[in-house]
Design a protein around this nucleic acid. Sequence first.
RNA 1: GCUCCAGUAGUGUAGCCAGGCCAAGCAUAAGAGGCUCUCAAUCUCUCGACUCGGGUUCGAAUCCCGACUGGAGCACCA
Length: 486
Amino acid sequence: MKLAHERYPDLLETKKKEEHVLPDLKNVHGPVVMRMAPSPSGPLHLGHSRMCILNDEYVRRYGGELILRIEDTNPANIFPGAYEMIPEDVAWLGVNVTKLIIQSERMELYYEKAKELIALKKAYMCFCKPEDFKEDLMNKRACPHRDTSPEQNLQAFDALLKTCPEENPPVLIIKTKLDDPNPALRDWIAFRVIRVKHPHTGDKYHFYPLMNFSVAVDDHELGLTNIIRGMDHLNNTYRQKYIFEYLNWKVPEYFHYGLVNISDTILSTTAMRKGIDSGEFHGWDDVRLATLRALKARGYQPETFRKYWIDSGLNDVNSEFSWDIFNSINRQFIDKGANRYFFVAEPVPVKIMGAPATTSKIPLYPRDDARGFRTYEMPENPEVFLNKADISTLSDSDEIRLKDLYNVKFVEGTCLFTSAENSGPKRQIVHWAPLNASQFKLIMPDGNEITGKLEPEAAKVKGIIQFERMGFVNKIDETHALYLHR
RNA sequence: GCUCCAGUAGUGUAGCCAGGCCAAGCAUAAGAGGCUCUCAAUCUCUCGACUCGGGUUCGAAUCCCGACUGGAGCACCA
């Protein structure tokens, strides 16, 4: 063992830090075809990133195709900008999409398959009121239209495509088993009328497929081999399998993973849109939102998402998202690249009595002098900014060290220079800013703003840096930065 | 109410399919300490879990049954 340690230190090291790997998918024979299927109600958020990464990882492992399919069959719930934003978000994550599909461009296909099902007596047009239809289902009763002939159904279907009645338009229903013990699986609605102008197809259509129908048709038509999706889709999978069965299609291999509950942020696209429209949020990248855009703006790395979701695995247990772990992973990616600077929140100007003129030379990164320094010429008895909380609890005997400057203590409210050397007893080390520091704003993840003084040499720096003793931030410009994490 | 899924430390996971190498590994968090002119990084140590009850077995985290608990679905959303 000792010998092995001497000979192969690297080997043992890598074994110790074993990477978590995703389990193999079942029934993989050669290349796979997989898909991501977001609805264009807004840009992608943290939750979406999971299905993106997971799908991408498997296509990378097995080879094949990864389809990005935008599911826009409900014109009432579309944010037009999402058509552009979603592919951008996916690309930012480093996900390799091989094909982009937009469902609203495939309406004729859905109509065609619907007619096939009608001809097979597996689908019917229903003219019931929604309440009545629902009540029939709950009581395992057939609605009066369930046994209409295929001819009549086809006629009604075609008529509806041409002209849409103003009141009580019919729906197309897929027949399943009315007596299925699971109420979710009894006859389900495949098409319904929506009279809203579609952002992508305008007013060309008004009879739209519901997700279960268009998904089943596309999953087959696009040749999907493996589908991984959340447990919340389990009943949908059962419903969609009816289509596969009726049309004699080969069923893809499904896997349903557990749901992840993400708290302490805003994920609901409707809530986001409302807030943006009302002016509460300034846009999709507002730091209070968990959109990929917002997280990117704060300084989260695409690699962080990938590692986090791979580590989380494909568990079929519901779980809790951990910001602690997510932040810890992100820190590993950014720490080495982030130079250190001083930002003094709640700044209090303090005149230091008895201090000699000196030069403060502060490394941009600890113990790596090659990266350079920030240097400040300090006059005699200078005035500096200190953080209010750092000095408010000091008593007369407490000596503190201004980092890379000198030691001071407060006696009866005045600040006195004591010594220059950082030797002897341990002192609390605090950061500071020279008098010509600029006014600066740090925007916290909850939207609160902290104003303070930023050291001059940081003024023109942009990107991810660390404010010493505070945490990592993404510096946007000369006036403000977004807080990332500790 | 009905249907389905699942239960490993505070959190996230490994192990379960093919029972023994598991008095349960790793990460994160928390606590203590080392190093360090940051509360970061880094190193060491500590803390902490197989939901419960039966059964099968020489042996169960792992297989079976039940209970309990949690989640999802039962939309003219996806």
